[in-house]
Design a protein around this nucleic acid. Sequence first.
DNA 1: AACACCGCCTGAGCGC
DNA 2: TGCGCTCAGGCGGTGT
Length: 314
Amino acid sequence: MPELPEVECLRRSLMPHLMGRKVVTVRLYRRDVVVTPDDPPGGASRRAKGKGPPSPVRRLRAEELLSGTTITDLRRHGKQLAILGKWADGRPMRVLLVHLGMTGQLRYLDPGVRLADSSHIHAKWRLDPPGRLVFRDPRRFGGLWTLPTEAALEARWQRLGPDALRVTAPPLRRALEGSRRAVKAALLDQAVIAGVGNIYADEALFLSCIHPGREAGGLTSAEYQTLTAAIRQVLRWSIASGGSTLRDYVDGQGRRGRGQERHMVYGRGGEPCRECGSPLCSGVIGQRTTTWCRVCQPRGRRVNTGVIHNARGP
DNA sequence: AACACCGCCTGAGCGC
DNA sequence: TGCGCTCAGGCGGTGT
């Protein structure tokens, strides 16, 4: 499932193919994967299901999906990828914001190249010089958000926490001061820190020797230092490995990642800890399956040396 | 106000 | 072989 490293690898892999290309046409196969600023709350009627009459959803103009613009930038904040399109006549830039959710893929295809699996394709962009961009998402937890201006993008990203790749201890500590929720749950909250999902939350907590069930507000500043360093570390390692491919993730060219090969705890409940050999614990914290080592990550506060556990390079 | 919980969705993996 | 069940989880809405 795509978290920050996967979205960053996607961004980097698409960059050379999309920059400077013009969007000639757009085909949208499912209106409900797109959310526009004036769609009813909850998105394009998809959540109205079973709760009263579905809200009316207007047709989209192709330009809202970047048709007619030239792609000038691909930006990422947390797990979100923004594609910016510029008009020749100087109108404000259009923005298409992509969420991959659990199973979303954004693929660039050279002319004549076909996707091995063309099921669940929801949108296609034809480019000039010739090429295609394809959005597919079997489970449709992801989607496309249209934004009229760059300022709207900035406003949206302002509501998220700092990007996890560059997060430092003081803002995270301030955000969680007095919070009684489990630190694991707090790390999954995108308004607190943007880009961490279930995989890297577990991995970063393991690296920093912090039990996932500890109260977020109860961590010392030294522990916040260690934790934020561990978050940056696991994300950097994963980006260097091309992201983690557990099932669906591939980059813009269809390449799988190898980050999963070095996971210390995620998905390893019951297996021996790679550090101390004791069986890893597994349970639900913050409504998510969580895996940790009861020896390496004791529940009680421990003397923190500031040294990241198992800090090996890639 | 802060946090917990629900429902959306499909395919893999499992037991029988 | 095939069916039906469970599980995975990001995120926004709703409940407490």
